[in-house]
Design a protein around this nucleic acid. Structure first.
Lengths: 148, 148
DNA sequence: TGCATATTGTTCGATATCGAACTATATAGT
DNA sequence: ACTATATAGTTCGATATCGAACAATATGCA
């Protein structure tokens, strides 16, 4: 591994640390018992629309379907989502947000405003947002090359 | 949450996805049973030196000390690290790499060369490395503001 | 149609992560 | 020195994540 490889590796190390720190910051703002993975799922359903199958969600989040089964069962028990039978495929189900799920999501989003505002105040919004194009490119590339 | 807040939030969403995808890519290259968290610890000891206390390592990785107890016990059982009593503090221990631990780490680093080279070939090394300054700034800021 | 194969989701067992409570040792204040 | 408090690490119970095996349904092809 040469010096350049190590710098690239360092990028992923920093990404990992940032993910851990921001996840911890946001997790502290979530309602009691709501894990970041639960919020992520609610967030996906709100932003990209519900009515997806569990397998489609597992694929979107790059987790095994067994993990999605578990996550969905937690959210269903909490009444934040509803699992309906698939209209045309007897093997499958469809995931829908409940009113309660939308409300919990909205409150969580609102609670995250404060740390985000402090970060942007201290570091500059444009500095942070400036990362977005390359991060998006990198994410899309990795998503298309999972078997790299 | 206004449009700017959402873009900042999107940065952290992308960071999370990139972390998940790269972790999966690297995990696939690790020896059987070696979890990414195990490799991360070996990597830290190699890069920054061993002889640290478990608590110092837990703090460095931002994990509860109970998690570090578990991780260290796994690595010790595999013979990759050695836990020695602290010379001056009877409560504490010191973590040292074994020769086997250094060897496993070296092999893992080497195995990650291939996916890193492919990424840099496809996306351009400078494009990826260009993220490093701001990511480092952001990581240092978050590290200093864990109670944000 | 009938059967082989593929797909969707669940169950089960194993490991990682975490918080609360605990033990042992060190330190500080009197 | 004595005692109260702080610190380092472990144990324990709970949850998240994951892979292997399984059940139910769908699809493709003879």
């Amino acid at each position: 591994m040469d010096a350049q490889d190590k710098q690239v590796f360092q990028v992923f190390t920093e990404v990992g640390i940032i993910n851990q720190l921001t996840t911890a910051i946001f997790a502290a703002r979530l309602p009691d018992g709501l894990h970041p993975s639960h919020f992520s799922l609610l967030n996906n359903l709100v932003r990209l629309g519900d009515g997806k199958t569990p397998l489609a969600l597992a694929s979107a989040f790059q987790v095994p379907k067994t993990t999605m089964t578990h996550t969905l069962s937690v959210l269903e028990k909490r009444g934040l989502i509803r699992l309906a039978p698939h209209e045309t495929d007897g093997r499958s189900k469809l995931v829908y947000l409940t009113d309660s799920g939308r409300e919990v999501h909205q409150n969580a989003i609102h609670a995250m405003e404060q740390p985000i505002r402090k970060m942007t105040h201290d570091l500059g919004a444009q500095e942070i947002i400036g990362l977005l194009p390359m991060l998006t490119t990198l994410r899309a590339y990795l998503d298309d090359n999972r078997d790299i």
